[in-house]
Simulated assay, not measured.
Amino acid sequence: MGAARLHVLAGALRDREGRVLLAERPAGKHLAGLWEFPGGKREPGEAPLAALARELDEELGIALVEAEPLIRVPWRYHERELLLDAWCVTQWRGEPRSLEGQGLRWCRPAEADPAALAPADRAILQALRLPPHYLISPAEVLPAERGAWFKQIGRAIDAGERLVQLRLPLWPREEVRGFAATLLPMLREHGAQLLLNADIEGAQMLGIGVHLTAAQLVALDERPLPLQQTVAASCHDAAQLSRALRLGVDFATLSPVAATASHPQAQPLGWTRFQALAEAAAMPVYALGGMAPAQGAQARAAGAQGVAGIRGFWRWP
């Protein structure tokens, strides 16, 4: 009989400047030299939040005041299975200090190097980086509407949206790339991310992210972009989510959660099935298919990073 899955708590301490605290694993420990979010093992019978409070007190000398669930990451290191249960810690008493010989440093999530983190902790970093909404451009947009859609995306960014996918199948690929290039200064000024749908070469050229199709997941043997450029993927079942994880995808959309007019033949997952798949995914997952921004809280309660969508997410004139 194998060993029981280890339940490990991790705290993403976030200060008023939006920085998070990372701890370096000391010499002599597994994954020594890599960075992680502070925390440790839950003792038998201990409530998760109580375990996190105890670990933060023992490691950093602080008293936990307020935290909320961030992401749960099932992971395997060699023969040991663990559940990395991450919480966003927004209030604490005391000044964090190294009590176990670990290095400590504060950094903004967008500036942290994923390659410097322990593999399981990279999903926590992505969850901190990603916003609650993922906007996808409507497939029927024509090249002649370029000016109108520059304004649409600008309005969305001004309204606080920070993650956009360009999915423009009616446009020549070079025109999509050119449009993306014109959008980048505005998006970068606001700290927003732009992903191209399926166009790996274009993403490489522009230094931005790519959203892989389900067909690309099957065809690829390795992550198509460096860790500094976001890779997302469209998934519809457990096998595709597992494949995305093996490729090192940063986040996925999982669909359809509900019935949609665009894919009437697709069987909806429903929230129960969505939650089971999302919680086993070991990466942030957006709920897609019949979603609207107002369903964000319901999606997060089901283990989602947030909600993704097309029509219901854009502000019309």
Score class of each variant (00 low, 15 high):
174 E>Q: 10
164 V>D: 05
204 Q>R: 15
224 P>C: 07
291 M>V: 03
270 G>D: 04
266 A>W: 03
209 G>Q: 08
106 W>K: 06
17 E>R: 12
114 P>T: 02
61 G>I: 08
304 A>M: 06
195 L>R: 13
289 G>S: 06
146 R>Y: 07
205 M>V: 09
298 Q>A: 13
22 L>S: 08
312 G>K: 07
51 A>K: 12
273 R>I: 08
46 E>Q: 15
171 W>K: 10
127 A>V: 00
16 R>G: 12
169 P>W: 10
221 D>M: 04
258 A>F: 15
153 I>W: 04
139 A>K: 12
6 L>K: 12
36 E>M: 14
212 L>A: 06
111 E>D: 09
229 Q>I: 01
285 V>L: 03
308 A>R: 02
118 A>E: 15
284 P>W: 01
5 R>D: 06
224 P>M: 06
146 R>K: 14
218 V>S: 14
128 L>R: 03
215 A>K: 07
298 Q>P: 00
151 K>R: 15
135 L>P: 02
192 A>G: 06
250 D>F: 00
93 R>F: 01
57 D>S: 11
103 G>N: 03
227 L>Y: 06
153 I>K: 05
247 L>R: 08
129 R>S: 01
143 P>C: 03
68 E>N: 03
21 L>M: 11
191 G>K: 07
31 L>C: 14
182 T>I: 03
4 A>Q: 12
256 P>C: 14
130 L>E: 09
267 Q>Y: 00
48 P>N: 01
198 A>R: 14
310 I>M: 15
15 D>S: 05
122 R>T: 15
222 E>V: 08
313 F>N: 07
254 L>A: 15
268 P>R: 01
293 P>D: 06
110 A>D: 03
172 P>Q: 05
167 R>T: 04
162 R>V: 00
131 P>S: 02
53 A>R: 02
85 D>W: 05
279 E>L: 12
120 A>K: 15
233 A>N: 01
160 G>E: 05
268 P>M: 00
172 P>N: 03
10 A>R: 13
88 C>D: 00
273 R>M: 09
186 M>H: 14
109 P>F: 05
276 A>K: 12
302 A>M: 01
306 G>Y: 07
104 L>H: 04
15 D>F: 10
89 V>C: 04
303 G>F: 05
78 H>N: 02
191 G>L: 03
131 P>T: 02
298 Q>W: 04
119 P>Y: 05
126 Q>V: 10
79 E>G: 09
274 F>G: 00
113 D>G: 03
50 A>R: 08
16 R>A: 10
230 T>D: 02
106 W>C: 12
204 Q>W: 08
222 E>G: 14
74 P>W: 08
110 A>T: 00
302 A>E: 03
155 R>P: 02
72 R>K: 13
108 R>V: 10
295 Q>K: 14
218 V>I: 12
292 A>K: 10
244 A>E: 06
33 G>N: 09
139 A>M: 13
155 R>Q: 08
125 L>V: 01
108 R>E: 10
192 A>K: 02
75 W>S: 13
37 F>S: 04
16 R>H: 12
86 A>Q: 01
283 M>Y: 00
101 G>V: 07
154 G>I: 10
274 F>P: 01
58 E>L: 15
262 S>W: 11
27 A>W: 05
264 P>D: 15
28 G>N: 07
93 R>E: 08
222 E>Y: 14
134 Y>L: 15
297 A>R: 10
50 A>I: 07
160 G>S: 09
84 L>M: 11
19 R>K: 13
